[in-house]
Each structure stands twice: as structure tokens, then as C-alpha cells.
Amino acid sequence: MRMNEVSFDDSRPVDGYGPGFFRVGGEVVQGAVLLTPSGVAGWAGFEDAATITAKAGEVDFLLIGTGAEIAHPPAAFRQTLEVAGIGLEVMASPAACRTYNVLLAEGRRVGAAMLPV
């Protein structure tokens, strides 16, 4: 099998996660996190749609990591992002980490807002 090294250019992939934290580009971030092409920021969860909508022009779509298990985000949160033109894909946070890294390696304009496991 041929193995190729993955290049993330200037972006920071998710290196790992655990109870209450994410490791992004070698740095540990406690709590929920928002990842966009412009960087890594804390996120206050589904009550904090404004932090995400402020990044609307940076991403083509956003992965929503709902924690250890997949769950539906509140309707008001989803509607606010859709009005801002941000497409959503909802999944459990472990799957969101993996998907984010794959899409990042492909050079896609992707973001991720994830709750910790």
C-alpha cells in the first residue's frame, strides 16, 4: 500500500480530542471550539450562533459536532445559520473531527463548530 503524507498548508487540523477538550494543531483547547480558515476560537454552543455567522464568508459549509452522540441542533440555531448562507452537516464530534481533517487536506473551505465529548 502506498502512503502519502497529508499537507494542511497553513490550516490547523484536529490532532485529538478527549473529555472536555480538543487538540488543534498541537494546542489544547478546552470546551467547545470553532475552527475556520482564519483560526481557532472558543464557542459557547448552540446559544452562540453570532460567533459563527460572523465567519460566514470564510466557509462554504460548516460541520456541527454535537458531542459524543449525534443530536439535532435547536431549530432557531439552524435557521440563523441557514439565513446567513452557511450550509450545515450535523454529526457526532469524533466524526466531525475526522471529516474536518479530510476536507481540510483536500483544500476545501470548511469550518467546524464542535461540542466536546
Rank of each mutant, 00 (worst) to 15 (best):
L62F: 06
A49T: 06
A44K: 15
T66K: 14
E47R: 12
R23C: 04
Q30D: 00
F61Y: 13
S11D: 01
A68W: 03
A71W: 01
L35D: 00
G57D: 01
A54G: 13
S7C: 01
R23V: 13
A49R: 04
G39D: 10
D15Q: 10
G31F: 01
F61P: 04
Q30H: 07
G25V: 15
Y17H: 14
D15L: 12
V59P: 12
V40F: 03
T51L: 11
Y17E: 14
G67D: 10
R12Q: 12
T36W: 10
A68R: 02
E5V: 02
E47G: 12
A71S: 14
G45T: 08
V29D: 00
S38C: 11
R23D: 08
V6G: 07
V40Y: 05
W43E: 07
G18N: 04
L62K: 13
L34G: 15
V14S: 14
R12N: 14
V28D: 08
A41H: 14
D48N: 11
R12W: 10
A44T: 01
G25L: 15
P37A: 02
E69N: 10
A44W: 04
G16R: 08
D48V: 05
L63Y: 00
G65N: 13
E69L: 15
L35C: 07
E5R: 01
L63G: 00
T53A: 03
V59E: 01
F21I: 08
L35A: 09
W43S: 07
D9S: 12
I64T: 00
F21G: 11
F8S: 07
D10F: 11
E27Q: 12
A32S: 09
E47A: 12
S11E: 06
G31K: 09
A44P: 09
S11G: 11
E27M: 09
T36P: 15
F46T: 02
R23W: 05
F21L: 05
W43A: 03
R12A: 15
F8W: 11
D60C: 00
Q30F: 00
T51I: 04
V28P: 03
G20C: 08
G67L: 05
I64V: 14
R12P: 08
D15N: 15
E27Y: 05
F8K: 10
V14I: 15
E27S: 08
T66D: 14
A44N: 12
